[in-house]
């Protein structure tokens, strides 16, 4: 998985600029153009800047919570999932940081209030209750990340941030499905695919 992500993240930067074509009605008024209709590298609009900050906050929190779960989870599948998140996100987060730096977008470096609240809840939970709470928090986190990435793909101006989003989204969808499957195995909650029951 780690290799897979690194490879797509490497290829996206070399893809042609025509791969992303936004609605110019949403360009920032001070956009510098590489040629008419094509913003120069690292030119951003409001959406790009907000995206980078929210995605960084989410990425930071997912790694933080995954590190916790990788040691604290009772169920092996939850542990494995958490470890996969640590690996994948560390790469994705540093790639995002590089793009944001190039576009001069300041990124958060501490947990925001919402993720702190989740962290507190997880700190207080133990055993099976922890596993379920963690997985549920990750389902919500991945739902939100998927929305955020798709939003950037549709509304952004910085083609590299958009390509970063497009390259990251399949893995996020995959993690979302993994989390849903684990939640289904742990609690018996409905899922779109048949999952071997593990709850008792």
């Amino acid at each position: 998985m780690r290799n897979f992500l690194t490879i797509i993240l490497m290829t996206i930067t070399t893809a042609p600029a025509a791969a992303q074509i936004g609605n110019p009605a949403g360009f920032a008024p001070d956009t510098r153009m590489q040629e008419p209709g094509v913003p120069a590298d690292h030119q951003t609009n409001n959406q790009d800047r907000l995206f980078a900050q929210l995605a960084a906050a989410g990425g930071l929190a997912e790694v933080d919570l995954a590190k916790l779960a990788a040691t604290k989870a009772a169920d092996a599948r939850v542990k494995e999932f958490a470890q996969a998140l640590v690996d994948d996100h560390s790469d994705a987060n540093s790639r995002l940081k590089a793009l944001a730096d190039a576009a001069k977008i300041p990124l958060p470096d501490t947990l925001d209030a919402d993720h702190k609240a989740v962290r507190q809840k997880l700190d207080a939970a133990e055993g099976q209750a922890f596993d379920v709470a963690y997985i549920r928090s990750q389902i919500i986190a991945h739902q939100k990340t998927a929305q955020l990435l798709a939003w950037e793909i549709g509304s952004g101006e910085d083609a590299q941030l958009q390509r970063y989003s497009a390259a990251t989204l399949p893995a996020v969808m995959k993690h979302l499905r993994m989390a849903q499957d684990i939640a289904s195995a742990l609690t018996g909650q409905a899922s779109r695919e048949i999952v071997a029951a593990k709850h008792n």
């Binding site: 110019p24 009605a25 949403g26 360009f27 920032a28 008024p29 609009n45 409001n46 959406q47 907000l50 995206f51 929210l54 906050a57 925001d112 919402d114 939100k144 929305q147 955020l148 939003w151 509304s155």
Partner: peptide, 14 residues
């Protein structure tokens, strides 16, 4: 903190 124009159409900026 969610983007303000996830659901509603943003106004053009240009």
């Amino acid at each position: 903190p969610l983007p303000p124009d996830l659901t509603y159409r943003p106004l053009p900026t240009q």
